[in-house]
Design a binder for these strands. Sequence first.
DNA 1: CCAAAAGTGTTTCTACTACACCCATGA
DNA 2: TCATGGGTGTAGTAGAAACACTTTTGG
Lengths: 241, 241
Amino acid sequence: MKPNFIHTYVSVDCVVFGFDYENRLNILLVQKHDEDDSEKKQIKLPGSLIFSEEDVDDAAQRVLHELTGIKKMVLKQFKCFADPMRASNESDIKWMGTEYKHDIDRIITVAYLSLCKIDHKINSSKYSTVDWYPIDEVPALPFDHNKIIKESLVEIRKWIESDFSIIFELLPKKFTIRQLYQLYSALSEKYIDIKNFHKKISSFNYIIPLEEIEKNVSHRAARYYKFDAKIFKKNNSKLIK
Amino acid sequence: MKPNFIHTYVSVDCVVFGFDYENRLNILLVQKHDEDDSEKKQIKLPGSLIFSEEDVDDAAQRVLHELTGIKKMVLKQFKCFADPMRASNESDIKWMGTEYKHDIDRIITVAYLSLCKIDHKINSSKYSTVDWYPIDEVPALPFDHNKIIKESLVEIRKWIESDFSIIFELLPKKFTIRQLYQLYSALSEKYIDIKNFHKKISSFNYIIPLEEIEKNVSHRAARYYKFDAKIFKKNNSKLIK
DNA sequence: CCAAAAGTGTTTCTACTACACCCATGA
DNA sequence: TCATGGGTGTAGTAGAAACACTTTTGG
């Protein structure tokens, strides 16, 4: 065996997005149970090494299930991060030692995107603490997790551009067109006139108006709508470019 | 160390596209120098295990350089393939043994896309045989290489949709609008009227008409054009949606 | 002359944009 | 009654699509 080829550990890390009531994108970050070393409350992206007979997609699905309690979440692999220096600082190396009870020379990670309704109950079997962080309030994280998050933002935009229907994974089941507008604006950057947006959205047959309207608002109450995935799929619409 | 976490080898595999004179997409496949076992002339995607201090992007760049002799090629990581069964059949396992002189339990690979002008001289330092294969004439390949190629086709379409300028990596430096049309059609699937395409393309200021025209054609000779990357970059045009 | 493709012009249609206007609700 | 946002209508415009027409070349 040529000595310079390397045996490495492979992990998955998941960037789970949520959209809060103040129209901000959020990300789920976790803290591990700190068994002995209570000083090290490491906040990080949820992730795991892969098992010996496990595909990376399955590992990501497992991490998401352990994280949220949800069985099947929308997910998308977006990039393998393999910079040899990505786990090079003191505390990262120390963390790997305590976490995996072994000296690990190098870890390569495969990053995943996922989407979650922020009002969904988070039921973690593995982590003591799971919290939403608005993307501009994400603290300094270990490894290259900040870099992963930064790139995930570019990726989520592309994702929604290529498949508009996944945007509804971030909204409550019933939502107002303004909510959808705010979310779409937060993701797409370019300005869109809300009136035209309204007209366009309500022209889509897969956006179903409900009887229910907002309550206790200091202006005309907005109607709630729901998204019908079946109808969307049927006309396979790429109506928003 | 929990025993079920796995130490694996990580490789990169490159799908290099070319566009031939019969308007077909082609892929570069290689054959290794067969030192002893002359019966095993394994045709496969070019690839390599990564070195211990090497990022995957650098490994892909290295593979491409060893493959073509070209220093800097356009490349894009598109997916990590990690099915535990991807290297499970007899001959694949045997190949890994002879290639790397070691028993390898599992290899995960990171797949890359690259583009090459088909008239560019291929100067391989590593492989005895490097050949272009039209995509519908690609033979059965080892590991999951056929699957990788299949998915790379989806990816190259997305790539050109998101960055039109990379299409010119596949064309000769001077090309006719018909050539560009054929290539674009081969990639985008939906029918476009060639007249309208012509009009649209020639309206772009980064497509520069040359003095030279075709020779020895049995119809009106077409003008050659060239692509000006600087102008394209300046107006950062997304003119083709 | 004809066939074939280059290249240009014209018309139609669709879809986005900008913006005017009325509606509903709470303070 | 005013402010705020919901919701609808209309007119203007850019660009895509369909297609007719002229040009150039070889046979």
